[in-house]
Nucleic acid binder design. Structure first.
Lengths: 232, 232
DNA sequence: TCAAAAGTGTTCGTAATACACCCATGG
DNA sequence: CCATGGGTGTATTACGAACACTTTTGA
């Protein structure tokens, strides 16, 4: 060690997304303490001594949702460090984006006073008239943009699904995240034809009325060729 | 203010890229002080009190290159915070990516003991056998990947060019960054046909042997439609 | 007249869209 | 039987790759 001036506190904030009943939803907490006590905010917290940033993000995710991130996805989003972004002093926050399959409803039992899933409106402002504490509206907007873009060229949509899923379930993920309907026939051909995207299990399911569908697992591809372009 | 525990020092590191004589080059400095004294590293430095992160990146860029970033491009890359990444203690560093047109050779007169342009090898390891201090190899690799990807769907290649440039000059930027030749005929049609990418000045130039070429300025588009896909 | 680079036309394969149509189940 | 959703076939259109060809300059 030596004369290093420690000038900031470091936090991680989480944009946790999931799809519930055809709507893209984000996990928010009601803050219990100042600043912004009583207001909605993204989950997050301080990085502890000796802890790496992804480690801290994973820990916070587990604390807020009880999820150990199996089958989901976690990636760094961006870092926010405006000197006045936290009234307590210099706080530099690295935001992470998490995509999870639908969770058992009780997110209660979590650390935060109240953790709830808020639907993000299909277009325009992410939430309805709601506003989040700190600069979290900006962070959420960036997370949504990133998630929407990544569905195009990566197989990330599978992170929103159960380990085994049907083509229709995957399509509803795309429709929810992009906020627009897709042609089921073309969608089917595209995802099944894209190398490494889906891996058939050989099993069938009849969770819904109509003809039973094949079950798939996520494949090994990390980039989609060709990409799933979203409609104009 | 209040009882906020300041646990880290915050720095910015820069991946500054330019194209020189057909090679993609990165700006590196020879460190003058411990740790890693005498070794090569990315330029960067501590974020000062009351300074925002992009502000600090811009300041460091000016100090190292004397450039006020006119015509270039600066964006946040990612943040690195492994607890042991700096032997002096907890240092969280936000990396920025800068793309600049070719500079006057004398980057001397800069802050760093020695600032030089190092060509990045076309494929495989970014530099030849060189290794950078700290985790800067990792940061550089991420910056290169980001730059290569962004040339596909954004008009960012123009940030490597002078304010007015020819289609051939733009093509040489793509060839240098991607490390592979492109068909001049198809490239010409594609860039001139993509809405908002290029704006003709009406001027001609004859900087090179052969038929004079039209001069263009960067257009207003922020996303390319259709994208410039790099060859397999 | 020749080399070199700018720019156009044409052909061909691949992929996106739109939509007609058949298949397999539950009621 | 029919409603519902799963899945295939096919025509049209857009774009990328390859490459022959014309244009305009300097030497």
């Amino acid at each position: 060690m030596s004369r290093l001036r420690l000038t900031a506190a470091v936090t991680v904030d989480l944009v946790v997304l999931t799809v519930r009943d055809g709507s893209l939803c984000v996990l928010v907490v009601r803050r219990g303490v100042a600043p912004y006590a009583g207001e909605l905010a993204l989950p997050g917290g301080f990085v502890t001594e000796g802890e790496d940033l992804p480690e801290a993000a994973l820990r916070e995710l587990a604390e807020e949702t009880g999820v150990s991130e199996v089958g989901g996805h976690l990636e760094q989003l961006a870092t926010f460090g405006r000197p006045d972004r936290d009234p307590r002093g210099r706080v530099v926050s690295t935001a992470y984006l998490a995509l999870l399959p639908r969770l058992p409803d009780a997110v209660a039992g979590s650390d935060a006073a109240e953790a709830t899933w808020l639907p993000v409106s299909p277009a325009g402002a992410p939430l309805g008239a709601e506003t989040l504490a700190f600069d979290h509206d900006e962070i959420l907007a960036l997370g949504l943009e990133r998630a929407r873009a990544k569905l195009e060229y990566s197989p990330l949509a599978t992170a929103f699904c159960e380990p085994e899923f049907t083509v229709a379930e995957l399509r509803r993920v795309y429709e929810s995240v992009w906020g627009q309907p897709l042609d089921p026939r073309n969608f089917h051909r595209k995802v099944t034809g894209t190398e490494g995207f889906l891996e058939p299990t050989g099993q069938m399911t009849a969770r819904e009325p109509g003809r039973p569908a094949q079950l798939y697992r996520a494949g090994t591809a990390r980039l989609l060729h060709p990409a799933m372009l979203r409609p104009a």
